[in-house]
Simulated scan of single mutants.
Amino acid sequence: MAEDGQDDLEARRKRLESELGSLRKDEVSEQAKTAASAKNRKEMSKGLKLSSEFMAAIFAGFMIGYLLDRFAGTGPWGLIVFILLGFCAGVLNVLRSVGYVAEPEDRLKKDGE
């Protein structure tokens, strides 16, 4: 009788261990999915930030060039020059945000040291 109880308890313990193992695997895979989802959201927000900075610089150059041409009567030259300057500023902002170009404060600190 005692052996039947022990065998029954041993069988229940093994069944519970296997169920807990499968639940732990599911939990680990769920955590991995959550981490991947958070990383994807972070990368998406970084991409949107970079694209909006780029477009804002070009738009600012366009507006300055348009207003200069409108009030100074310089024809399309102000618009052309300031759109190109806005494009260059946008590229520089994106490169700084990504880390390919150092910030001006960082360069001054390195030169001073």
Results as ranks from 00 to 15, higher is better:
111 D>H: 10
108 L>Y: 01
26 D>T: 12
55 M>L: 15
43 E>D: 09
81 V>H: 04
27 E>K: 12
13 R>P: 09
29 S>K: 15
84 L>T: 08
95 L>C: 08
84 L>H: 07
35 A>E: 13
19 E>C: 09
72 A>P: 00
87 F>G: 05
37 S>L: 14
49 K>L: 11
74 T>E: 03
99 G>V: 00
56 A>M: 05
10 E>G: 10
5 G>F: 13
106 D>P: 02
16 L>F: 04
81 V>A: 08
98 V>R: 04
97 S>P: 01
13 R>H: 14
73 G>L: 12
26 D>K: 14
32 A>Q: 03
86 G>F: 09
78 G>M: 05
100 Y>F: 11
62 F>K: 00
56 A>L: 06
29 S>M: 13
45 S>V: 13
86 G>Y: 08
73 G>F: 12
57 A>K: 04
104 P>F: 02
103 E>T: 02
58 I>Y: 06
58 I>K: 04
110 K>S: 06
59 F>N: 08
11 A>T: 07
28 V>G: 03
36 A>M: 10
105 E>P: 05
112 G>K: 15
2 A>E: 09
15 R>Y: 08
69 D>Q: 00
111 D>P: 02
19 E>A: 14
38 A>F: 09
78 G>H: 00
50 L>Q: 00
47 G>A: 11
18 S>E: 15
112 G>M: 14
18 S>F: 14
100 Y>H: 10
20 L>R: 15
54 F>L: 06
17 E>T: 03
18 S>H: 15
107 R>I: 00
98 V>L: 04
30 E>F: 13
97 S>H: 00
4 D>W: 11
6 Q>V: 07
32 A>D: 05
99 G>H: 02
11 A>D: 12
107 R>H: 02
98 V>G: 04
47 G>V: 09
21 G>T: 12
3 E>W: 01
86 G>W: 08
31 Q>S: 06
102 A>D: 12
62 F>R: 02
110 K>E: 09
73 G>D: 10
36 A>S: 10
41 R>T: 12
78 G>Y: 00
82 F>I: 05
99 G>T: 05
87 F>M: 08
33 K>F: 10
31 Q>C: 05
103 E>H: 05
103 E>A: 06
55 M>E: 09
28 V>Y: 00
49 K>M: 10
66 Y>V: 00
61 G>W: 12
69 D>M: 02
110 K>N: 04
69 D>I: 00
100 Y>W: 13
64 I>T: 11
94 V>A: 09
112 G>T: 14
51 S>N: 08
30 E>W: 11
66 Y>K: 07
66 Y>G: 05
111 D>Y: 13
9 L>D: 15
